[in-house]
Every structure is written in C-alpha cells, then in structure tokens.
Amino acid sequence: MPNYVRDFVFVLLPLLVLLGVLPFFYRNELLLFNFTIYFALAQGLNVIYGFTGYLPFGYVGFFGVGAYGFALAIIHLTTSPALALAIAGLAALVLGVILIPLLRLSGAYFAIANLAAAQAVYHIVSNPDLQDITKGPYGVSLANVFAPRLSYYSALAITALASVVVIWFRNSRFGLALQAIRDDSLSAAMAGIPVVRQRTIAWLLSALIAGLTGGVFAWHISVFYPETAFDISISIFALVFALFGGATTLLGPVIGVLLLYGLYNLIGITIPQYFQLIYGILIVVLVLFLPQGIVSLVSRRGIRVP
C-alpha cells in the first residue's frame, strides 16, 4: 500500500468519520466545531511551517480576513454562504499575495513581520473610521444565514482539504523539494528546485486554508467582533498544537489538537489563566526537551509516523 493511501486510510479517514458521526451522539456542537477548525488550522499551519520552516506568527491574519470576507460578502453583497465562503478564501489569498514579499525575510524577521501584518489588518478592520464598510469595532451579525449543521460539515470538508494537502506534501516530489528548501535553500536552488515558486505555492495554500476556515467560522458563530476573528491566540494555538504533536507529519497536529485542545476545554474554559499558565510551561518544556513534537518519540526509533 503506498504511503499516501496508508496516511489517508489510517489517519484522515478515521478522523473524518469520527467527526462526521459525533454530532449525532454528542450535543455540544460548538465544541466539536472548534475542534474541527483547529484541526484545519493546525494542518494549514503545518503546510507552511512544517514544510518550509517559515514561522507564521500572524497566521490568524488569514483567518480573520477570511471571517470578514465571508461576513462582508453576506452583508454587502447578500451572496449565498457558498459564494461567501469562496470570497473568504479569495480574501485570504489576496492577503497572502500582498504578503509574498515577507517570504524574503528569514527566521525571526519573518515571524515578527508576519505578526505585525496580522495586527495591522486587525487595526484596519477594527478602525471606527471604516465603520460603514467593516462595522469597525462593533462586530458583525450574520443571523440570516445561520446554519449550524451545514457550516459544521463545511468545516469538516476544509479539514479534509488541509489534511490532503499535508498528505500530498509528505508523499510527493513537490513536498520533498519543499523540505530540501527548508533545510538548505541555497543547495536546493543549485539542485534546480524553483525555490521561490515552490515556497510561494505552499504559502498561498496555507493562507487559503486559514481563509476558508475563517469563513466557515464566521458562518457558524454568526456574531463576532474584530478581536474574536483576529485573536492572536488563534495563531498560537494552531502553532503549538502542530508543534506539540510534531510538524511535518499528518498525525502530529491531530494529536496536538486532541490532547491540548482537550486539556484546554477541561480546565481552560472555567479558569483561563490557569490554562495559560500550564500552556506556557508546556511550550517551554516542549521546546527544550521535545522540539520535534510527540511523534518524535516514535520516529526517532526509525519508525515512519504518518
């Protein structure tokens, strides 16, 4: 069985089936929805961080732009949710294209610039001067298209899309080339890999995933504010979930979301500070002792982790 089939059958399929049937047995649909979008975001971030090494601290920028793209399409253009979702993805792609020059930056510079970019978009969207267009800091309401079931399954579809991209990257020459670029961009360029084009494709795919996720988020929760959609902790959660499980793998982010977001929902909802405290310690310990994530406990023994 080829590796990509194995990845699909043993990891993605069970996850999709589980998330697909759970709403029929479990009443807290919002919780399931949140899990689903974090699966999508963690994989989307994995696409860019895991395979190219760029650390997108401002990943939430694409998510927020997607959420607002969706909302403004509904409000101003009164489109159908499906079309609005496409506009959400498009909006994130546009932001992704605008930010392509950031890819010239390396290491810390990229991470910081990306964070600043996300913040800048947030400040623009939430600016009271733009109230006529974005509703400024007062938030948007999309009660007329509210469709919890449909938006939930759309989120699931986006998770599937993000995971398929990761499976493709892991098992194709394209993905291998990306990793070669990550490890040594100069040598990769000399080996004839079109470095700039390949990393741009990964960047835009990653942006698209976050934009679509943001759109479906807007659709599902239907009332939100700029600081909800551009909450920096969304970036951070996605990043830490991916890292904790193990970036560059399909299974890693899944494990990360299950364990950490599970933990968050056990203690974080009631006393967020205590969760933040544990979370902070966890990140430090992770970086110091398990920088390759949980899956590295297995993969360092030479076993292939999906």
């Binding site: 650390l55 290491g107 205590y274 933040q276 979370y279 990140i283 110091l288």
Partner: peptide, 22 residues
C-alpha cells in the same frame, strides 16, 4: 535556535502573563 527561541519565549510570555493576571 533563533526560531525555537521565539516559541520558547512565547511560552515564557504566556507563563508570566498568566501569573501576573492571577
């Protein structure tokens, strides 16, 4: 190290912020 330092000190940041707000 440079990249990991960002993540590590982000953890420290979360820790301090949580501790301070408690």
């Amino acid at each position: 190290a440079e990249m990991l330092s960002i993540i590590l000190f982000f953890g420290v940041q979360q820790f301090i912020e949580a501790l301070a707000s408690i």
